[in-house]
């Protein structure tokens, strides 16, 4: 009896070792000398309006300094994506599946977190305003890219990368609805931006810096005519390119701390 038990024990021990060993191969990446430690970086959107950069929010009346239009935004949403962080040694860390839908409705939906950033010192950020072309042609997706957000054109496939809607007495309908998108050829509005931190920013397991981006909805009409001329954009094209580029190219990293 004793002998039998010992035999079983050995078999079971072997099973256990094999089992554990095979798990290791399945689950762990190649063991290296350095165990990577991760932290995270937060992002926050700060909204301002016009050259005076007064604080901006939904459901409040603003007069556009250039067009003179009275504008009350009821909906303001846009995608920011493909974050990369530049390390002090000059190499870049790229966030996988990096897509965020920003909604001016709430502070929570105007901030985001970039998880699993390798611990280290960083000096710059690269980000994309809009959604890269590949993800406009990749079918049904999840997270920020869900088709249930109302940010995907059903009749002319592609993401609505920026949606600005509201009321204005200067529009013939009393309303404006600017749906900006387009990812190919001359209709492409996708804009890659980079910003230097101007210092070294440390990311550790316990140190989470926050990047604040300032966006200015008034910039949509920086070179575009007022609502008497264009109050609705619902597809890619030259009008969308001008408006989107004017807005995107003015997005600034206002602080990192």
């Amino acid at each position: 009896m004793k002998t039998t038990l010992s035999k079983y024990s050995l078999i079971l021990a072997a099973t256990a070792i094999l089992g554990l060993d095979s798990c290791k191969r399945d689950k762990d990446p190649e063991p290296g000398p350095i165990v990577p430690v991760y932290g995270s970086v937060n992002g926050k959107i700060n909204y301002v309006f016009g050259a005076d950069m007064v604080p901006w929010q939904l459901n409040k009346l603003y007069v556009h300094p250039k067009t003179g239009d009275s504008l009350t935004f009821t909906n303001f949403r846009f995608f920011i994506s493909n974050f990369k962080l530049k390390k002090a040694d000059g190499t870049w860390w790229t966030q996988p599946e990096s897509y965020y839908l920003i909604d001016a409705k709430t502070a929570a939906e105007s901030s985001f977190s970039i998880p699993n950033v390798p611990e280290g010192e960083y000096t710059a950020v690269e980000y994309t305003m809009g959604i890269d072309s590949l993800h406009n042609v990749s079918g049904a997706q999840t997270g920020a890219l869900t088709l249930s957000s109302g940010m995907f054109w059903d009749w002319n496939s592609g993401y609505i990368m920026l949606k600005a809607e509201g009321d204005s007495p200067n529009s013939s309908t009393g309303k404006f609805a600017l749906h900006l998108g387009g990812f190919s050829g001359t209709n492409n509005i996708v804009t890659v931006r980079t910003a230097e931190f101007g210092k070294t920013v440390k990311v550790t397991n316990g140190t989470t810096p926050t990047m604040t981006f300032t966006v200015n909805p008034a910039r949509l009409w920086h070179t575009s005519p007022g609502l008497a001329t264009i109050s609705v954009i619902h597809m890619p094209g030259a009008e969308a390119v001008t408006m989107a580029k004017d807005f995107y190219n003015n997005v600034t990293l206002s602080s990192v701390q």
């Binding site: 021990a13 256990a16 554990l20 095979s22």
Partner: peptide
């Protein structure tokens, strides 16, 4: 050992 073996196997589920 039996328990260890089972634990090992169950952790292997993808």
């Amino acid at each position: 050992l039996l328990l260890a073996g089972l634990a090992g196997i169950s952790a292997c589920k993808p």
